[in-house]
Design a protein around this nucleic acid. Structure first.
Lengths: 189, 189
DNA sequence: GTCTATAGCTTGATAGAC
DNA sequence: GTCTATCAAGCTATAGAC
């Protein structure tokens, strides 16, 4: 065919759902084929490197989503707390109010060091740096800004784990609401 | 043989390491056999219900560890903050200073509702309840105590995710140190 | 670009000897 | 209680028609 049955971005979006939900090992080609509507062999045409290339492409796709959409408000000209609030709003949608897992979490399972784990670590650090940058612009010292960024991301990830494990999404929602103060106020209250 | 090659508790301990590291889907019988030193067929003699029974036994084993050891200090007669400090010390060891994952996290991947997910949710709630109880004994209102327990567990789980994803265990260590105040002080500072 | 068909390996699980 | 040998089903990956 001239044009693909599923466009690249749509394909990556569907792929990302499988990897987010099941992790790398749980994302079997059967599940992927079912979720994308493509047969196994068609997937190998799109991703000659097989499952590992799919995983890497999904990580790159999510990197792009974060850079161009989810974290973009952090670099606007609004007041820092407003920027964080807008990011929280977008994250809330992306993570389906706590009902979807984080790719960086589910793809980091298993022991060995491999290219995927290295990609995950890089993406995580980029997210941390973006949070720390807005905290510094809010007037926090670099050290404190970094610590607050780490706290914010820990609470966020923990909220997602708790939502997945217990089905209770309220703590996750609370974390989202606390992010602006956490990342911009000089003292906790 | 009269006595088993690997005693029950040792076997469960080795099993738990595989499930913690790889999750349910990633814990293949090959990995389990290698980690336990038993052949596949021997594992089926110990766990006739197969992999699912192994997973359930591991969850029960960890429940017992939490009840009898890790969370036990919460119910001592020390001051509440001291109790939490002792729990944090034990958790620090159990999670190998952040280098080991939480079973309740890695076993909660994948979509469908099943007996394992229900067990995970129950164990998570028991942990939450124990934390909330000590917060109430420290003088917090039931509502606030529950919220602090949720916060504590979110930060803890998030710290583990961050440690696994980035290799940086310092934020996790910081969370451990903050737990006593978080669970016993009436105001944040 | 997608498909059917298939290769070859790994998976979870079982049978039966010792 | 553990083992070797084996099974059917699943897996990742490839070949070749359309």
């Amino acid at each position: 065919m001239a044009s693909p049955k599923v466009q690249d971005r749509d394909l990556l979006c569907r792929l990302s759902k499988v990897f987010r939900q099941h992790g790398y090992e749980g994302a079997s080609l059967s599940r992927i084929a079912k979720a994308t509507g493509l047969q196994r062999a068609s997937l190998y045409h799109r991703f000659p490197g097989g499952k590992e290339e799919m995983a890497d492409a999904v990580l790159a796709y999510v990197d792009e989503l974060f850079g161009n959409d989810l974290l973009a408000p952090l670099f606007s000209d609004l007041p820092p707390a407003q920027r964080v609030k807008e990011m929280a709003k977008r994250l809330r949608g992306f993570y389906e109010r706590g009902q979807a897992s984080c790719l960086l979490d589910t793809m980091s399972l298993g022991g060995e060091e491999d290219p995927i784990k290295r990609h995950v670590a890089k993406s995580f650090d980029a997210w941390l740096s973006a949070l720390a940058a807005v905290a510094r612009e809010a007037g926090l010292t670099p050290t404190l800004a970094r610590r607050r960024a780490e706290d914010a991301l820990m609470r966020f990830q923990g909220g997602l784990v708790m939502a997945r494990a217990t089905g209770n999404i309220k703590p996750f929602e609370r974390v989202l609401g606390e992010l602006p103060d956490l990342l911009t106020k000089k003292e906790d209250d």
